[in-house]
Design a protein around this nucleic acid. Structure first.
Lengths: 226, 226
DNA sequence: CAATACCAGATTGTCTGACAATGTCAGGTG
DNA sequence: CACCTGACATTGTCAGACAATCTGGTATTG
């Protein structure tokens, strides 16, 4: 009972936000059925409205649905994590290259990275890390790159929640890499900025995938599909 | 769009397809109002169903909507074209690099490129060109890259329809570049394949933008609000 | 005569309630 | 024990209704 903290203006949006929160906080575990009736009664909206909210989360990739079946919370596998971060690396590299081309360092990216260091060393920093990356992409003049990035980040947040990986690397280490990316942008070094950004994201990918393998046992797969 | 909704028997999906067709074929011109009532009566569905269809096209970017206003067919400006192709270049380069890493040449990409050459020289080749690019991205093992690519291509098709640009370059020329990309993939040359793919898409961008400038004269554009 | 207040129409945003289609699963039957 | 059947759960869609909100024009007012 997340209570009815929904007096937002647009109803379906509020429901989407509440549902997303529930999913990402693992209030709804992977494979859990999310029926229209459940959403309808939990958030005190009509079933059509609940249906719309579920629809949106399906297109966001947080829920999956087959015809005439209840939607379920998506379970991300090793290959999904791999794919998500590989795609994300491409987007972020492109964004960072755009920034470097005009030596534009987004102010809130700097701010976000500072916040990352101000945290106590043992605090989970995933949210602040993500904030940094988002502000990088949002700092470009592009409107499509943030759109694509958001799409990926929604699923990635789900993946991070499912692969219960806190602090695979230290916040200091991560922040230092962020710093070097910002430096390359400021220097207008397009090639280096892009390379660093790509490497940074791919390192996260490899860390997560390795962690996934070590916790889920199965050691072989790679580019094979299920 | 064709990303997940494979069941065409679903009403809203059918309406979405029909509406998209109408928009891309310019049956609905830019800035034309698309009210729920219009969709409802035109396609003989209830208003809620029409609303859902409009919703989807808004998230696809073909329609724009402000609260309490009718949705309108999106008008793409110079900056939009630029942004779309720049983002697309990043996606396609990433896809082609994935293919080259395993020297995987998608069979239907070869086929699509052959079809491009078999066309009479003066025929519009936009559809076949797009088919080639789609099959490249779909040929990867990634599931997210095609999703992102589709999102961009939907808007890009709209842009190509709006900027009435037939054959800025000859089909032969385009097919030759495709050929060299396929060669690089077959050779497993990741760097070269990515570079060629990026250049190929950016060349299209520059051609379209130049054409836009020459036909629309004024260097201003984008969504005009009052 | 100009500026403002206000009213009517259009359109969206959401609800209630209903019904058919489809998929699931437990029980009964041979 | 395999198989059929029918109740149940859930989705997919519809119809109609009503309040909220925006637009544009008209009437009121200074």
């Amino acid at each position: 009972m997340p209570s009815d903290s929904i007096d937002a203006s647009v109803r379906p949006d509020a429901v989407v936000a509440a549902l997303r929160e529930a999913i990402l906080s693992r209030g709804l575990v992977p494979d859990a059925a999310v029926t229209e009736a459940y959403v309808s009664s939990t958030y005190a909206v009509a079933r059509p409205t609940a249906r719309i909210a579920i629809d949106r989360l399906v297109t966001e990739g947080l829920l999956v649905r087959e015809p005439h079946h209840a939607a379920r919370v998506r379970r991300l596998g090793r290959d999904d994590i791999d794919d998500l971060f590989t795609s994300r690396a491409a987007i972020e590299a492109a964004a960072v290259e755009l920034l470097a081309a005009t030596s534009t360092v987004p102010a809130d990216a700097v701010e976000a990275n500072r916040a990352l260091l101000d945290q106590p060393a043992d605090a989970p920093y995933a949210a602040r890390d993500i904030a940094f990356h988002r502000s990088l992409v949002n700092g470009t003049t592009s409107t499509r790159l943030p759109r694509l990035h958001d799409l990926l980040m929604g699923e990635i947040e789900l993946g991070i929640a499912q692969v219960d990986a806190h602090r695979l690397r230290s916040a200091d280490e991560v922040a230092a890499e962020h710093r070097s990316i910002l430096d390359a942008i400021a220097a207008g070094d397009v090639e280096r900025a892009g390379r660093l950004a790509r490497a940074h994201v791919l390192a996260s990918r490899d860390g997560l995938v390795a962690h996934y393998d070590s916790t889920h046992g199965s050691p072989h797969d790679s580019t094979h599909r299920k």
